[in-house]
Amino acid sequence: MATRKTPPQKSTAASLLEDAGKAVAEAAVETSEMVEALIATSLEPDATGDESPFEGATSGFADSSPDAAVSEPGAAEPENGHPPRFHFFVIDAGWKTEPSKVLRDNFHMIRLFQNNDPLYILNREQSIALIRANPDLIGKDPILLVHDLHARGGRGESGYHGFRLCLGLINNPQQALAALQKFLRFVQQHRGSEDIEKHIRDKLHRKGLENAIEVMRESIAA
């Protein structure tokens, strides 16, 4: 009686084991990254006292490589082999304010911590023209606007998705720098997320609740 060989079963079992091993390894890496992020966040002093909703953000998402190629004439060539996830735009009409100086002094840092995603800096004339067309932006600049290229064509009326940081509304330069750092940290930690806007909304909601609790506590203390 001939013995039946079952290589497909062995191969299936082997592949299952291999998949399980990969999943465990990925989970371990992800966990270690989360722990590192938590430690880094908890160790960082926050002496500025600003109200950034991005404070203490931790990455809970697996990295996903960008799949939306950008091929515009003015777009940056991918430096790290991947098309960029975000386009960063700086709008600054030229107010002589400390937050403006903070932002301009840190253009290079923005690029460094954003996986070299392109940073587009509007000159004064371009910024003024844009703000004239959108007068509600007066006084809010300098603005760091982030366009999420992955979300293009998704939900929404225009298909454009992203978020912004209006540094012009922050008076204190230290708070402006802290806000910029927290903003970049949040973006970097969630750049693998499918829907980063949702995380921002969640953060804002959570921060709003914290504010409400703080106000109630202050009221009781008074």
């Binding site: 909703p53 735009f89 844009l130 009326e157 978020f163 209006c166 806000a179």
Partner: peptide, 23 residues
Amino acid sequence: LRAVYDVLDVETKHIAAGLEQMV
């Protein structure tokens, strides 16, 4: 808080569209 940080809403999405057009 929402004036300083927020996602692009219906009123500000066209700004992103304009900026991409400039690019």
